[in-house]
């Protein structure tokens, strides 16, 4: 067989907490290899789905195969090949960084010496050697995250769940975490990561599933998702701000739709992904003698995608509950 089995395959996964259907019929196919992004606002059901797939929570309905094993019947086979880095650092704050890694190494079956050697190696590559003897409660958020991920790769897993790995990190620490994720993928691990950050999914994930209110509302590459929404945006910059109104008429005439003035007096933008029409609009502008100093074609952001798919922006959390029309 040349077809590689998917890392995760679920059908109709449901988890109910009291009245809330936290996960409400999730069908997913996560191919082996690469990064799969699980995107959605707080309370959308990302964490619950991950906790089910990581054998921590029993699904109320539906089936799932993880790394070729049935989630409910063979959890130990799955646990032996998967690692989980939870939303809050899943390391022991009272122990030192080195002790945390030795603890995990011992629980995986390494001897004392092997576990200590592996801990040293990981502390070194994750840039934590200097902090090895410090208690984790004194670590910065970024250090804690790196230790947390290091603890997940004491034995390189075939599948790694990362629940919001960069939430609360500064840009430098976030970039380091991204580098680690890329390195893991290069080493052959399948990474399933949840994120609220559209940029993160866009940068890292080969495929993305958008989850909202316990359901998958879209799935595909981030390019697919953007195309499904349709339009990108064309930004045009004029040499003469005085002629902006004139330019606006030309653009709306050729491209159609609403032309919006930009922040600067010489800027204009209009939604379109139709390159031909954009081309002819630029030709029309030059025919009318309106100088164009620059133009740029933007793909839609995942923010826009999310809004188009769900009817509400991505940063809505529980307290921002709104009754969608």
């Amino acid at each position: 067989m040349t077809v590689v089995e998917p890392a995760i395959e679920t059908s109709g996964l449901v988890k109910v907490f009291g009245e809330t259907r936290a996960v409400d019929g999730v069908d997913l196919v996560v191919p082996a290899g690469g990064v799969y992004g699980f995107l959605g606002p707080n309370g959308a059901g990302k964490t619950t789905t991950i906790r089910m797939l990581a054998t921590l929570v029993r699904p109320d309905a539906g089936t799932a195969r993880v790394l070729g094993h049935d989630l409910v019947r063979e959890p130990d086979e799955i646990r032996a090949r998967m690692s989980l880095t939870g939303q809050y650092a899943s390391v022991d704050e009272q122990l030192t960084g080195a002790e945390n890694l030795i603890l995990l190494g011992r629980l995986l079956g390494f001897s004392k010496t092997q576990a200590a050697a592996r801990a040293d190696e990981l502390l070194d590559v994750f840039g934590l050697t200097e902090a090895a003897g410090k208690q984790v409660k004194d670590y910065s958020g970024g250090m804690r995250r790196r230790l947390d991920i290091a603890a997940s790769v004491v034995v390189t897993p075939d599948l790694l769940f990362l629940d919001e790995p960069t939430t609360g990190l500064d840009p430098r620490a976030r970039n380091q975490v991204w580098d680690v994720i890329r390195a893991l993928v290069a080493a052959g691990t399948t990474v399933l990561l949840t994120t609220q950050y559209l940029e993160e999914a866009d940068r890292l994930a080969d495929r993305v599933a958008v989850i909202d209110r316990g359901r998958i509302v879209a799935e595909g590459t981030s390019g697919d998702l953007k195309r499904s929404v349709g339009s990108g945006t064309v930004h045009v910059r004029l040499s003469d701000p005085e002629r902006r109104q004139e330019a606006e008429r030309v653009l709306s005439g050729v491209i159609g739709g609403e032309v919006k003035p930009g922040a600067e007096p010489n800027a204009l933008s209009v939604a379109s992904s139709d390159l031909e029409r954009v081309g002819s609009a630029l030709v029309e502008l030059s025919r009318a003698g309106i100088g164009v100093t620059g133009y740029r074609l933007d793909e839609p952001s995942l923010d826009e995608v999310f809004f188009a798919l769900t009817g509400h922006p991505a940063d809505v959390d529980e307290k921002g509950e709104e009754s969608a029309a």
Binding site: A80, L108, G109, F110, S111, Q114, E121, L122, D124, V125, F126, G127, R146, V153, V155, T156, N175, Q176, D179, V180, R182, A183, L184, A186, A187, T189
Partner: peptide, 17 residues
């Protein structure tokens, strides 16, 4: 970061005790 250069080497071993 340095992390990106050194991590791959540490991840090549998949021997599970």
């Amino acid at each position: 970061s340095d992390v990106a250069r050194s991590v791959p080497a540490a991840l090549t071993s998949r021997t599970r005790p």
